[in-house]
Structure formats: C-alpha cells, structure tokens
C-alpha cells in the first residue's frame, strides 16, 4: 500500500534526466522559433541531418566520459586519444579498402591499451583521475607533436562511406553511436560490472567494505572511455579522410564532454547519473551549435554563449538536494516492494 503511494509520488517528481530533456525541448522550441525568424525551417531534413551529424563525435566521447565520471574519476586524455586513433587507423589503411579492418582493430587496440594504463595508474598508483589523465594526455600530445607534422594517412572510399551514408535524416555514424550508448546503458543497468561501477563511484570505501573489487570497475570505465574516444577518432577519419594530430584538441573534447555529462545530470563526484541524460546534454549542445550557425553568430561569441548555457543549465537542477537516493535506485524494485510488504 505504502509502496504504491510512494511510487505514485515519485513518478510526479522530476528526475534530473527528465529536466535535461525538458531543457532540450525548450531549446528546440527556441531554436525553431529563431530559425523561423531567419526564414528557414528548423525541422527540414537537411537541418535535422546537420544537427544529428553534430552529435556523433561528441556523443561517443561523452558516453565514455559518463562511465569514467560515474566511477568517480575524470578523463582529460580523450582529445589526444581521438587524434591518435585517427592517425593510427589512417596510417594503416593508407587508402586501401583491404586494410580497413586492420586499421580499425589496431586503432581501437592502441586506445584500449591507453585506457588500461589510465585505469591502472588511477587504481594501483592511487593517482587522482584528473592528474593521471592530464598527464597521459600530455604524454600522447608530445608523441603526436614529435612524430606527426601534419595530416597523415588516408581513409579508403569504403570507410569514408560510414561518415557519409544516412538512413533518412539519420547518419549511420549516429546510429553506431546510439548503438554503443545502448550497450553501455545495458552494461550499467543489467550487469554486475555496472552495479559495481555505481557503488565504487558513490563511495569507494563503502563499496570495498561491502566486498566489491574496487579496481575492476574503474579500470573498465577508463578502458571503455578510451575505446569510445578512439571510435570518435575513427568517425573523424571517415569524415575528413585523413588523420590529423590536432583534430581532438581543436574540438576541446575533454572539457566539452565533461560539460555534456554534467549537463546531463550526472554528479561530477561520481556515483549518480546515467547515459541517457548525457545524450540529452550532447543533443542540447548540437541544437545550440546549429542555432548559432543559422543565426550566423560570430565563431568566438559561440564559445561565450556555450559557457553561459553550461552554467545556466547546470544551475537549473544543481540546487536540488543531491543527497537523495541514487538515480539508479529511484524506482522501488520488486525486491523493495516485497521487503516493504514483509514488514
């Protein structure tokens, strides 16, 4: 009885993910109106395709960043991993269709090794994720600057098609990104690893005392984050057809992905949040970027607007009490209900 009552009351209160999507709807409505004042249609197929394409690269990286932040760490090395992945894959492919698989596998393997090292440094050496990944980013950036003077390698036509093909208004690359996001969501909600990730991120000491191996989830989160950043690099390679040593740092993907994750309602301290919110955050950025392009806003002013939006949007729900139950456990599960009745 009381469980039903509770359930009913909880469904009325907005989760932070709910707020993110409300903000997204608000931004879309605003964009539609402002786009209309420019005499253009926001919902035209071409415009929707542009917006969706804009979510691809940041989407991959932000989904990975969500995992790392949930685990209570940070990943500042993503832009350099992205660049490295595009260079490695581009170099191996060298314009030959037969090398596509080898290039993809090699690039992702390199990224996985980097993520593994990040995770091990964070867990075994007990270095704060901020420093460990900042250092790893610097290490890779030094390697890139020394060995690559400019763009390098070439993507064959068959690989470039991934970036160019779309089904209706939806690019294939975005579908792949969403596929990865679904896999990550399933991992978080349905596997032991996912549960442990939330537990370790929420309170490492309590998780350890509860018998959770605290290293595995953190290492796994870093590994997946680097691999997803590598996927973003592959996507950039297929779009640009050459690998570039500066493509990642130019995008500022480290800070932008963290902003998207926090915009999506994930707690920066870890342990609370979800991938769905992050996707909402990425979509908000994409719609805003599109809107500012349509309004032909100065490129530098775009940054200023982005900064204001980040702070304003996070302020909308940051004041809410963060000490409530974890998002993961907001809805009472079957076991909860049984326990309630047993009492």
């Amino acid at each position: 009885m009381s469980a039903v009552e509770q359930g009913g009351r909880r469904s009325v209160t907005l989760t932070s993910t709910g707020i993110v999507y409300l903000v997204l709807v608000f931004v879309v409505v605003l964009a539609a109106i402002l786009t209309a004042t420019q005499g253009r249609n926001f919902f035209s197929t071409g415009n929707l395709t542009t917006i969706l394409t804009g979510t691809g690269v940041l989407g991959f990286i932000a989904v990975g960043q969500t995992l790392v932040i949930l685990a209570g760490s940070l990943d500042l090395s993503v832009p350099y991993v992205t660049s490295l992945s595009s260079l490695v894959a581009g170099g191996i492919m060298a314009g030959q269709s037969s090398n596509v698989l080898a290039g993809v596998v090699a690039a992702l393997a390199v990224c996985a090794v980097i993520g593994l090292v990040n995770g091990l440094v964070v867990t075994l050496l007990d270095v704060h994720g901020f420093i460990a990944t900042l250092g790893m980013g610097l290490i890779i950036s030094g390697y890139l600057a020394t060995n690559y003077k400019g763009s390098h390698g070439e993507a064959p036509r068959s690989f470039r098609l991934i970036g160019a093909t779309r089904i209706g208004p939806v690019p294939i690359s975005v579908l792949i990104m969403l596929g990865c996001a679904v896999l990550v969501i399933l991992m978080l909600r349905r596997t032991r690893l996912g549960m442990h990730l939330y537990a370790v991120g929420g309170n490492r000491e309590v998780a350890r005392m509860s018998g959770v191996r605290t290293t595995t989830p953190v290492v796994a989160a870093h590994l997946l984050s680097s691999v997803l950043a590598g996927m973003a690099g592959l996507l950039l390679l297929s779009r640009l057809s050459v690998g570039s040593p500066t493509i990642g740092s130019q995008g500022g993907y480290d800070l932008m992905s963290i902003a998207a994750v926090v915009l999506g309602g994930t707690l920066l301290a870890g342990g609370k949040g979800n991938v769905l919110g992050t996707l909402g955050g990425v979509a908000i950025f994409a719609v805003l970027d599109n809107l500012m392009s349509v309004m032909s806003l100065n490129a530098f002013l775009k940054d200023a607007v982005r900064g204001l939006v980040i702070v304003a949007a996070v302020a909308v729900y940051a004041r809410r009490d963060t000490h409530r139950r974890l998002a993961r456990f907001e809805r009472p599960s079957v076991t909860d209900r049984v326990l309630e009745e047993a009492r």
Binding site: A259, L268, K302, G307, V311, A318
Partner: peptide
C-alpha cells in the same frame, strides 16, 4: 547556486575567452 566549480569556471573560461 551549488554548481560544481569545475563547470562554473569552465563556463567563465569559455565566456571570457570567447568575448
């Protein structure tokens, strides 16, 4: 406003340097 300082100062950084 209880916004994490990482985000606040990131926002200030983008806004200031953009301007």
């Amino acid at each position: 406003l209880k916004v994490p300082s990482f985000i606040v100062t990131l926002g200030t950084m983008l806004a200031l340097s953009g301007l």
